[in-house]
Structure formats: C-alpha cells, structure tokens
Simulated scan of single mutants.
Amino acid sequence: MSETIAINIQHLSALMMVAVVSLVSACSSAPARDQSADYESAAPAAAVDDGSNMGSIYRSGYGMSLFLDRRARQVGDIITVTLEEKTDASKSSSTATGKESNISVPTVTLLGRGVTHNGVPILSSGVSSDQDFAGKGTSSQSNSLTGSITVTVSEVLRNGSLRVRGEKWVTINQGEEFIRIKGIVRPEDIGADNAVPSYKVADARITYSGKGALADANSMGWLGRVFQSVLSPF
C-alpha cells in the first residue's frame, strides 16, 4: 500500500513539473502579433476582366485620367495622417468650511427654587459643537504625440466623408511598437500631398502601445495589480 502511494506521489510530482515547465515556456515565448480586424487595411474591389480585346487601346476595368486629382476618394485609396496631438490640462480646487453651535439649557427650578448642591446648580446643561474642514487638490496632465501613419479608406459615407483606418508595426530588438488610428476625414481637409493632420480626423481613435520584453518590464505584475485593486483590504 505504501509503495502504491509513493508511486502516485512521484507521478503527481512529475505532472506538476511538466505543468510548471509548460507554463514557463508559454510565458517566455514571444507574444503573437495582435491583428485586429478593426484596423486592417481595406482593399478596393477587384476589376473584372472578361478577357476580350476589341483591338483598341481601351480595356474594360482599366482607366487613367490625365486631369484627375490623386487625392484619396475611393475605398482602398491611401491617405497619410500626420499625428499632431498635444494636450495640456490643469485643475486646482480648494474648499474650507466651518460651523459652530452652542446650546444651553436654563437651570431647572423645583418649587420655585433652583436645584443646587453646595450652592452649585446641578440640573443645568449645555452643548457646544465646533466643526472645521479644509481641503485642497491640484491635478495637471500633458501629452504629446507626433509622427505619421499611412492608412486606407475603408468606407465612403453618403455625405462624401471618408472613413479611414490602419496600423503600423515597428519591431525593435525584442519588442514591437504599433500605432493604430481610425476615424472620419473630410475630402476638403486632405492636402495636395494627400495628407491630413490628425486633429482634423473626426471620431478619431488613436492607439500607441507596444509588446515584448520592454513593454513587459514596464508593466505591473499580477500580484501587484491585486494589491492595487479596489478589492484589496490593505
């Protein structure tokens, strides 16, 4: 019986070691690139070629205009978004309150005379209260993001505005950094160089983040997040 228990304990220890090694291997492996469908580039509809050639220069589905503005205007067209984001915010507040209350009860009389002990009234009372509060708080925040990212037109709205989206990944040593953006652009805001500043992108969603060893080193561990959560009793 004891030999069977010892063998089972050895098998359990071996399984635990395999599980620990698998967990460590999974944690040490490089994270897979997050390919979000919300930021994938949109491709235009493929031209249909029936294969016929009537002996002329013109071919169906293939065209070029000598006087057409090359600014983005159709699904799949490319547009450059220049990131010019800068925000500064500050806030300060100060509060002070005070309250003072006094309540006194006159001396109680009994049979027309005050109740005293050795000449001191014993049934007179008074209550006083004094409350003071002072609070002060300040907050400031500053953010800046510059650069550029080239995206594609994913949809042409009925009013002519262009819905754009795209992402850019940069791999540096053991880490990856990416920029994602999506929003709505007016064709009138697109410059001659087929670029538009980010502050003219409506409903803009801009994300700048990273993955890899450097990003993991700058993030708090799961145990630290537990102690920092609202559920922590400390």
Rank of each mutant, 00 (worst) to 15 (best):
R59L: 06
V185Q: 00
S52R: 05
F67V: 10
R158M: 08
H11W: 06
G55K: 05
A14E: 02
S36M: 07
G55S: 08
G175D: 01
G221L: 10
N218L: 03
A43T: 13
Q35A: 14
E176P: 07
V20I: 13
I179Y: 00
S93R: 07
L68N: 06
S125R: 09
I103F: 09
L223R: 13
S125H: 08
Y208C: 03
S104H: 14
S140G: 09
R186Y: 12
W222E: 10
M1L: 14
V48C: 10
T95C: 05
G166W: 01
F234H: 04
S28D: 11
S101R: 11
A37T: 12
K211A: 03
P197K: 06
L162V: 03
A215W: 02
T87P: 00
I5S: 05
F234C: 02
V48H: 12
S139V: 12
I9N: 03
A195D: 08
S129A: 10
Q131H: 13
P44I: 12
A43F: 04
L15W: 01
D34M: 15
R165P: 01
G98V: 07
E84M: 07
L110T: 08
D77K: 10
W222G: 02
R205A: 14
S129Q: 13
Y39W: 03
K168W: 02
H11C: 02
V156N: 03
A213H: 09
R186H: 04
S142V: 12
I122R: 11
Q141E: 13
S154F: 00
D38G: 01
N53D: 15
P233H: 15
W222I: 15
G147A: 08
G147E: 00
S144Y: 10
D216S: 14
E3G: 06
A72L: 02
A47K: 12
A195N: 07
A202M: 10
S36F: 10
G119H: 13
L15N: 05
A30G: 11
V153I: 04
S41W: 01
P233T: 11
A32K: 14
V81Y: 03
R158P: 05
S93L: 02
D50C: 14
S140C: 04
S140P: 02
I5D: 08
G63A: 10
D88P: 00
